[in-house]
Amino acid sequence: MASETHSATSAGSATESPFTPEPYVVERRVVETADTVTMVLKPAGGRGVPAFLPGQFNMVYRFGVGEVPISISGDPNRPDELVHTVRSAGKISDALTKTLPGETLGVRGPYGVGWPLQRAEHQDVVIVAGGLGLPPLRPLLYELLAHRDRYERVEIIYGARSPKDLVHYEDVQKWRTRGDLRLQVTVDAAGREWYGDVGLVTARIPDARFDPPRTVAFLCGPEIMMRLTAQALSTLGVPEASIWLSMERNMKCAVGLCGHCQWGPAFVCRDGPVFRYADVKRMFSVREL
């Protein structure tokens, strides 16, 4: 799959096993929602955290339970810690969310290609996140805001199931008050305590300010949400080659050896998880691919 995304995956030397997790100690644990926590990890034994690119993921392991792929949700410019936001969605991820400070998790990675942020320089940037799609986009936002002057207008649309399902709320509040980006938050349904928007992220696109032909879009969230958003942006005139999205598939090995994450000719773990809409548009319309 042709890709201009970055890759920093360390394939491992001849003597190293690509399957061996490294121990990381949970330093802090932030409860995001009823089923989601953010964990700040520090490498055990004074090692450094491997450099990562926004959009990459790690295999995160709980001793005796197993490992699952989790996107990195922290700041790429903070090399002292590794941040993962995990939602309890199965036996392993549930065990991960219950890991307490002081306990040790295993980590191997980073894997996959990251968001090609350099392609957005001197362009308008539209970031659309749905639900747990925000954590994989947060490193991109940190990086973007660290060099804000390189980009033109920045629009963020963040959708969630309900107000109580919003994650990274502190960051969301900070971004909201910044003068150099616009943020719209929308939920699928809400009670009267919610003063924000209700509806799909696609319904917020008309209110976003960007010049479609000079826009780069980054999408992450449920597949249907990304498909509809990509279609909507494309209809407005955003080039399909400028729309990037992050895919999710069953993964076991994360290095292209186990076969699980195949999506057409792509290994999502290795050729993705970030793909260019123009390259994968056709695969989106094939059922059960």
Partner: peptide, 10 residues
């Protein structure tokens, strides 16, 4: 090519 290519299965 699968096991001893981009990533080496030890």
């Amino acid at each position: 090519r699968v096991f001893d290519g981009v990533v080496r299965d030890p």
